[in-house]
């Protein structure tokens, strides 16, 4: 059911949209997003107030802005709530095993370098069980675009603590509060070698859109951490009754600090959430390095690699 509300004339001035706004264009339309969604699977499974849908919204706008051909875009997800993203985006999409989206994507990208391969998964999936792969894909600088939706917990399984859980958080496996050290993803990824690292919250929809556009332009391992509300399993146990409450907290507590030393990129919900683009550097990616190296050491014996399609 679609309702159109055609407004009366107005003189009101547009208030500045939150932080670093990018002017909306007429192209940015729902109908365009629908081409990139499996409409036969909408509505999706995500709860009311969940931020994953918002992140997908921003992501798809970036896909459209960047004019990525639909048949060259591949989405690879692991397991979990964010792991379901692959199932909703209408491109070749792969819902893999828990933590293994990155090595699957590595195989996919290396076997056909013409594909634009995006890994879209959650914090528990990518950083705990999949942590080893995150390290090495970033180190090798595999040309994949990672979007990590961080809702601070494992949501699909009922809100257990993750490496990204902030100190003091009540999670289902930390009924007395979380006391382990929280992983600072931008700092971790910088050490591993990612060429682009940003953190935004789902309040920063236009910035996510822009960041994804920037990642599409870079040839190498890029990483965007998207802080998202999980009202059902994080928020309600931790003072944020609804997704909207958590979004308001993001708005209030986020500080944009582009290019800050990632060691200073603190992430303490309710106190300070440092967001921004932290790293944007150039390093040869895996395939370029391989080509250059083998070309040099093997000379004519090297048959330049263009993909492994049988």
């Amino acid at each position: 059911m679609t309702e159109s509300c055609v407004a009366e004339p107005t003189n009101s001035v547009i208030e500045e949209s939150p932080t670093e706004s990018i002017p909306a264009t007429e192209e940015a339309a729902c109908t365009h997003l629908e081409d990139f969604l499996r409409m036969d699977r909408i509505p999706h499974i995500w709860c009311p107030g969940c931020g994953i849908g918002t992140s997908v919204n921003s992501f798809l706008r970036a896909v459209i802005d960047s004019k990525i051909p639909q048949n060259k875009l591949c989405i690879v997800s692991g397991i979990g709530c964010t792991g379901r993203v692959a199932g909703y985006i209408n491109v070749d999409s792969f819902h893999t095993t828990h933590g293994r989206a990155i090595p699957f994507a590595t195989g996919l990208k290396l076997a056909n370098p013409e594909l634009m391969v995006v890994v879209y998964s959650g914090d528990g999936d990518l950083t705990a069980i999949g942590g080893n792969h995150l390290v090495h894909a970033a180190r090798r600088n595999i040309d994949i675009k990672v979007i990590c939706v961080n809702n601070f917990i494992y949501s699909m399984t009922g809100g257990q603590a993750a490496p990204t859980t902030p100190a003091g958080t009540i999670a289902s496996t930390t009924p007395y509060g979380y006391f382990e050290n929280q992983l600072n993803l931008p700092q971790f990824l910088e050490a591993c070698g990612a060429v682009y690292i940003a953190r935004w919250t789902t309040f920063h929809v236009r910035q996510i859109q822009k960041a994804v556009c920037e990642c599409f332009k870079k040839k190498g391992f890029t990483f965007i951490e998207v802080i998202a509300p999980c009202p059902t399993l994080y928020g309600r146990r931790n003072e944020y009754r609804t997704g909207l409450d958590e979004m308001k907290m993001f708005k209030e507590k986020s500080k944009i600090k582009n290019n800050i030393d990632t060691r200073e990129a603190t992430l303490i919900p309710g106190q300070e959430i440092v967001v921004g683009k932290f790293v944007d550097r150039e390093r040869p990616n895996f395939l370029d390095s391989m080509d250059e190296h083998y070309g040099r050491v093997l000379g004519d014996a090297y048959k330049p690699y263009t993909g492994a399609i049988a």
């Binding site: 792969f94 076997a111 090495h136």
Partner: peptide, 27 residues
């Protein structure tokens, strides 16, 4: 030397899923 690719992955878990990814790319 024959236009193929070998990658030494970080562990066997990664190797065993990377081949699935490559298979879906057509390899």
């Amino acid at each position: 030397k024959i236009g193929g690719l070998f990658i030494q992955m970080e562990d066997e878990i990664a190797s065993s899923i990377a081949i699935s990814g490559a298979a879906w790319a057509g390899a």
